[in-house]
Amino acid sequence: MTVRAFYDAAKVGEALAPYDTIHLKIYYPASLDDSMEQINMGVVPARADSAPWPVAIFMPGTNVPVESYAWLAKELAGSGIVTVLYSWIKEDMPGFICLSPGIELKNLTPSTFGSAPTASALPALYSALERINSGGVLQNRLDLSAIIIGGHSAGGSAALLNNNPAWFPWLKGCFTYAAHAAASTQLGFANDSMLNICPDLPYLLMAGSRDGVIAASSFRYGDDKASVSTDRIERTFSESIDREQGDTHFVKIRGANHFSFTHPTDSTTGRQFLDWEHEGSDDDIRSCMATLIISFIKGQLLGDSAEMNTFSKTIDNNQLIAEHHCK
């Protein structure tokens, strides 16, 4: 399967220059030909079959470069899920310029949470997808009524908190790794608060048993000392999501740490120095994650019975699955 990608950009209306532009990289199933456009410019046409395709928008961790998620984008696009990775350098907090998933902190306080989206990147990304679907290599190839959001770390938390069809009616569901819905005391929430998130769509929450970053970050939520690495992810599943339709999952992956989801990992940015050593093969861990994500999207969200079976078999038979709960 040939996978190709191209770049694009989107303006964020309320953001101030120079931090008002998101840069996109869109991965898609492609078909090599001998056209002059391909030879001259490297523009490869989309594969002709099976379109329109669902779309996954992936929200990155803070200061994690887009290249670290290319492995997943290639896997998703190769299975027929067009995937959008993006980079947005912005000022998340006063004086803190970072590579951000696009978090709107003003909507993430005790008095504002739940009243409006906290993911300021999503409207601009959807507008860009509408434009991309109207012309060019992916003209009429995108199913804009079947969009899935995913994310890692802070980007995963942004995905969890915005998986809401009242705000974004084109959403089908959400997948995350190393992300939870705990509320930061720095934003005014009481110690050990968990945010309620929209129960109207399915979720796949994945956690790593060796996640040192989440454990070391527990002070943000009022803990006096480091917590269990997966505790708040499990509590997000059990306490924050009031959904009982058999399509929402918590999966703990044996031996995975916080940055097992990234490849390659850039240790010059982000907080890799907090992580614990992973156990086992990172390649096997990522392969397990990709299988779970693809079969969750195509099976649970899009109704492919064979993919539902793949998800179940992976849960039952893969030795990397340390724990699974469904509701």
Results as ranks from 00 to 15, higher is better:
Pro29Arg: 02
Ile103His: 10
Ala158Glu: 09
Glu75Asn: 13
Ala10Thr: 06
Ile285His: 03
Ser305Thr: 10
Val3Tyr: 10
Arg141Tyr: 07
Ala154Pro: 03
Gly270Val: 08
Asp284Cys: 07
Gly212His: 07
Asn191Gly: 05
Lys106Tyr: 06
Cys198Met: 07
Ala46His: 07
Tyr19Val: 11
His278Tyr: 09
Ala116Asp: 15
Leu292Trp: 08
Cys326Leu: 08
Ala322Trp: 09
Gly303Tyr: 11
Phe175Arg: 00
Thr314Met: 14
Tyr126Ile: 14
Asn318Phe: 09
Gly80Lys: 14
Leu142Pro: 01
Gln300Ile: 15
Leu129Asp: 02
Glu244Ala: 12
His180Ala: 01
Gln300Lys: 11
Ile147Arg: 00
Val43Ala: 06
Ser267Tyr: 13
Thr268Gly: 08
Val84Gln: 03
Asp304Thr: 08
Asp20Val: 06
Gly42Phe: 15
Ala70Pro: 00
Lys252Tyr: 03
Ile132Gln: 00
Asn318Arg: 10
Thr268Ile: 10
Ala5Leu: 10
Tyr69Thr: 07
Pro101Cys: 03
Ala322Phe: 10
Ala48Asn: 01
Asp266Ser: 05
Cys174Lys: 02
Glu67Trp: 04
Thr112Lys: 09
Phe6Cys: 06
Leu138Trp: 13
Asp283Cys: 11
Ala70Arg: 06
Asp316Asn: 13
Asn163Lys: 07
Ala207Arg: 03
Phe58Arg: 02
Ile97Leu: 14
Thr2Met: 11
Ser100Arg: 04
Gly78Asp: 01
His249Pro: 09
His324Gly: 13
Arg232Pro: 02
